[in-house]
Write a protein that binds this DNA or RNA. Structure first.
Lengths: 205, 205
DNA sequence: CGTTAGTTTGAGGCAGATCAACTTTGGTGG
DNA sequence: CCACCAAAGTTGATCTGCCTCAAACTAACG
């Protein structure tokens, strides 16, 4: 959603072509640029000392990323990895500074995006306390499939996004498939019954 | 931190005086104003259908709140409650619109605040996966006492912030007190050993 | 086809939530 | 100022969701 707004500013833009599994930046590094997705899919992950990985956000076509650290003026709090073949436009910090000086509309759009993301993060935080693992997994299945229907999500990705383990995701998906709420298609899946999926495990599934 | 920036805009400001336990707004309502704290303390809480409460953010003197929903242009995703006697300045949506039109510096400050809050929320999200309850409780004890040393936090508040239960908070605090890392003072507590508190339960406490 | 990353299924264990009964604190109003 | 009592905190016993570990299977890509 940002590409159209930013397009006029991008003159001599630096482009980047990467494949699944490639890192764009690592947690702890200092942000030197923003990234815009021309095509592909990128995930933001946090890795703990104990080796546990958490899937924080997904970025798709026309999304910007790296902006949170830029505005917070802190180092990256998480790492970004390509989830599939991806084409990026790299915008330098200097270019950003110029743009932010002049374009109030862009600043407001950024404010809206960050505000929505903060709301989502906090609702996920609350969800980890008051929803069961199967509920959160069912919600993640819907979220991923609605927002990025063409990507085949691994059980591991779904687990790290929903706050669970890939074994639990497998078990829940088997159950959901048995009940006809989803259909497994190789490693991929499709959603049959949206509504029942949201009500799943609403105490006792 | 916002009051100084906003002070010049506040002419005929509406003021609000409330006591502990009073709600300022409820989850689901449409945001009609922003709030600025002249004195006191306010908590942002999310309540689930099952009755579980999650403590999302704290706001103190000079902090603004209600801004996330204003910028996201969505209804409130959580409720705000006074944690002690509090004096508020109420800023109408119209006033906000005017201010945002003209003041780029203020927009940038807002962007920084939201970016930092998003980072914190996501690190807490990750922490719920990869840290033990005692670790999270110890961190919350530090966070609360450093940021708001004069407030006496209840076990329930600490629990809802750290993602635990008040019984677990009690047990952990007893253990920490026995080891001399904190000192219980009536219902309040003080911190004796910061460093060891952070290392607590770093696998096996 | 061979290889490897991804998936499935089962068995077992444990951190921490829940339930319950009791004690302490500190505010308030007589 | 003290007595009272509701709110807050403590402590113990129990219970369970789901994580962990393990082992065998299968899809998909070169």
């Amino acid at each position: 959603m940002f590409l159209p707004l930013l397009r006029p500013y991008i003159k001599s833009s630096h482009k980047l072509s990467i494949k699944r599994g490639d890192f764009i930046y690592h947690e702890g590094e200092s942000p030197e640029s923003l990234f815009l997705i021309e095509s592909g899919l990128v995930g933001l992950f946090h890795n703990s000392e104990t080796g546990k990985e958490t899937f924080l956000r997904v970025f798709g076509k026309d999304d910007i990323f790296g902006h949170r650290s830029y505005f917070a003026q802190t180092n990256y709090h998480a790492s970004t990895v390509a989830l599939e073949k991806t084409e990026l436009i790299v915008i330098s910090k200097d270019q950003c500074n110029e743009i932010c000086q002049s374009d109030t509309e862009l600043l407001k759009t950024m404010l809206m995006t960050l505000s929505k993301d903060l709301g989502e993060a906090e609702l996920r935080l609350a969800g980890l306390q008051d929803k069961t693992a199967p509920q959160r997994i069912a919600e993640s299945l819907i979220y991923f499939k609605l927002k990025y229907p063409d990507h085949t999500w691994t059980r591991k990705e779904i687990a790290e996004f929903s706050g669970s383990t890939f074994e639990s995701v497998t078990r829940v998906m088997t159950k959901l498939s048995d009940r006809g709420l989803i259909a497994k298609e190789g490693r991929d899946y499709s959603i049959n019954d949206h509504q029942k999926l949201l009500e799943f495990d609403h105490h006792q599934g």
